[in-house]
Amino acid sequence: MKKRTKLTICLGMICALLVAISSWYTIAYNNSRFIAPMDLSEYVFRVQDLPMIISGVFLALYVVYLVVLLLRYIMTNRHRKLTLQFTRTINPKLGFLGLLGFAGFLGFWTYSVDKTIFPFVFFLFFGFFGFFYEGKMSNTFIDERYKENKMKAQSVANKTSLSIIFLAILILGQGKLMDSLEYTLIALVIVVALSLALEIFLSEYLLYHYDNDEQFDESEE
């Protein structure tokens, strides 16, 4: 494991430990201040608050450190992408992650229990089926035909997805699905999540299709 990864994990563990100890202290000896809701506009400093303040500051610094790391990673990755010559190598079996999309059906259950509709967003995970085709195109040399096919595939996928969202907004925008605004919102969330999943899947599927599907003998002539 890299030195920096180890350091990040260690710092995270120290922060978690500090938060746990200070939370225990404030619950046991400080009337749960900073844990129970309190009005900070009337806050008066007490020495017993110090553990929570210190652990809070450390946690905030750690979050800033993580954000800096993330930004640096994004910048480095962008540079790497510009000079990239081969596609990334991933295992086609990652396509099975697409099965997580079925978690979206949990939304019907949570909605009936406590009106929570967030799980419908999990339908997005159906897009992970695209990893199957991306895996098949692993470590492919990126030449001009690949770039052309990729652009074509992304363009068709975006167009398809946007057309579905457009139609859904046109139809569901009336807000009269089963005469219920709530059902309309649910239907809209489902359609948008599924359309985005389709876009993610389709761009990988079409790229593979365009790149490999011509039917002819590929042996050297």
């Binding site: 492919t140 040399f141 030449d143 001009e144 035909r145 690949y146 790149d211 590929e218 002539e221």
Partner: peptide, 20 residues
């Protein structure tokens, strides 16, 4: 600087190459 498959498709007139 292209893949063998690209040359193959070129030879079968199934791909229109860039000017470069």
């Amino acid at each position: 600087g292209v893949r063998r498959e690209t040359i193959m498709r070129l030879e079968k007139a199934q791909y229109n190459p860039s000017l470069k």
